[in-house]
């Protein structure tokens, strides 16, 4: 009466759920970072952000 199948299924579901969550957070972070960089490359700055060193004269 080992019920190994139930144990394996539990750990598999846990591994998939946690891995999915980690990958989603990483992918979301990478996407937002890329969008921020693209906007900054177009010269768009947040109003609260000070001018960059390159723009200061």
């Amino acid at each position: 009466m080992s019920h190994a199948g139930y144990v394996i299924a539990s750990y598999a579901v846990a591994a998939l759920t946690v891995a999915g969550l980690i990958l989603w957070v990483i992918a979301d972070g990478t996407g937002r970072r890329r969008e921020l960089k693209a906007l900054e490359d177009l010269g768009i700055r947040r109003r609260s952000a000070g001018p960059s060193t390159g723009e200061m004269k």
């Binding site: 972070g29 969008e35 921020l36």
Partner: peptide
């Protein structure tokens, strides 16, 4: 990530 998302939104609005 959420802070970055809000910054992207505000920068797009600014643009």
């Amino acid at each position: 990530n959420e802070i970055w998302r809000r910054r992207v939104t505000s920068m797009r609005r600014q643009a």
